[in-house]
Design a protein around this nucleic acid. Structure first.
Lengths: 224, 224
DNA sequence: ACCTGAACACCGTTCAAGT
DNA sequence: ACCTGAACACCGTTCAAGT
């Protein structure tokens, strides 16, 4: 139950060196993401977060303004796995593909963050920059601006939906509940999803390809 | 600040009749949805809910087991606006269309419920029945079962994404924040979204049509 | 049967006090 | 400068007590 990290009382070895390294934003962000990955956002309380860092809850307020800033830090970490400025110079369809795959992979790797990040306003520079680059790649390719935004939003939610449904711990559809409430087909289909995570990405890739083609056709009809 | 509903002290008119009708599940569900629509899920505390019903918080536990049951009740209300058993007898593509439009409209009408309902496990009979009917409509049309589930999940998140982005109070992308963080294109595009809610549905309809066509093509390739 | 006040454990957050 | 204990307001929930 107790954490294996350094406790101040037991080991006074190397007297000049502090037993616990000073807290940083990066350490807090990392610990928060770990807790969310291992459990969920609800479990990432200020107390739990502080405990993992070998500190008391009020200490955290010396490094972050409040819990909302922790949300931003976690988002920054996940976005860092997605954002690649190089897509700016790619053709629109190629940029959508690269971004879509990276987006899916990041959230398939951290499915428990979806609940938090997909419903929280975006305030941090890194994430806004990522969106800026994506939109500019499409606009450079001759896309209508509003259409570019629609493509982005649809793409995001498509990726999030699949990443969440196939990887999150608490599945939305539970075969047991389905069977108990007269939904046998739901129960049957959801039952053998256990080892299907492997094929989840290939399914998403297929869908993503179609999705991009669909927008390219529309662009051909309207803005060119 | 105080509510206009009946308070026990002021009006003893009609002595035999109780001033406040007895609480029911339906009344609680209705009040909860109203609070979420007017504010958000965070504001729907047991105290606020009780106050709207002219009662104290602990009284609610006489009618519901806990807050999780209130989630189920709200979901039931929203689902009642979507579910139409008649789609069972429609061709697959037609069923997807009908369901998709109804799904989008219900959540565009109650965008603040998305955050709550899209991240909470489904336990209630009504919702499971709705899924059962949808999946059976597709399977009757010759679709592969797993493919039917994928179509459902993708459709849901596509609809939710658009309903949320175009109608929710707290937008994910704020033009002010974007401009402040060096994302001018994001700022520009998100700036004139105010009166674009009207065209949101037509955009979704266009996307939905393409989405269905995409799945029909895949079905033609693989399962027929 | 239904509602209530009081109480409990648990949140996020503040702050004066320590080193 | 950084961390702490104590305190505050606010959650959801329980329960003995009222009618």
């Amino acid at each position: 139950m107790s954490e294996p990290t350094t406790e101040p009382s037991s080991a006074p070895r190397k007297p000049g060196r502090p037993s616990r390294p000073p807290l940083t934003e990066a350490m807090i962000a990392q610990a928060a993401l770990e807790i969310i990955d291992e459990h969920d956002w609800q479990s990432c309380t200020m107390k739990a977060l502080a405990q993992r860092l070998g500190v008391r809850a009020p200490s955290l307020y010396h490094h972050v303004a409040g819990q909302h800033e922790i949300v931003d830090l976690v988002r920054k970490l996940v976005v860092s796995e997605i954002h690649d400025p190089a897509i700016l110079d790619l053709p629109a369809a190629e940029a959508m593909w690269q971004f879509g795959i990276a987006y899916y992979r990041a959230f398939a790797k951290h499915p428990n963050t979806i609940q938090l990040l997909s419903t929280t306003p975006i305030r941090d520079r890194d994430t806004l920059q990522m969106y800026e680059v994506f939109l500019q790649a499409l606009v450079r390719g001759g896309w209508d601006k509003q259409r570019a935004l629609e493509a982005l939003l649809g793409l995001e939610h498509l990726a999030l939906g699949f990443a969440f449904e196939w990887n999150a711990e608490d599945l939305m559809l539970d075969p047991v509940a389905a069977a108990a409430h007269g939904a046998p087909l739901v129960a049957e289909i959801t039952h053998d999803r256990t080892n299907q995570n492997a094929i989840a990405e290939s399914t998403f890739r297929s869908l993503l390809g179609r999705y991009i083609a669909m927008f390219e056709m529309e662009a051909g009809d309207q803005s060119l």
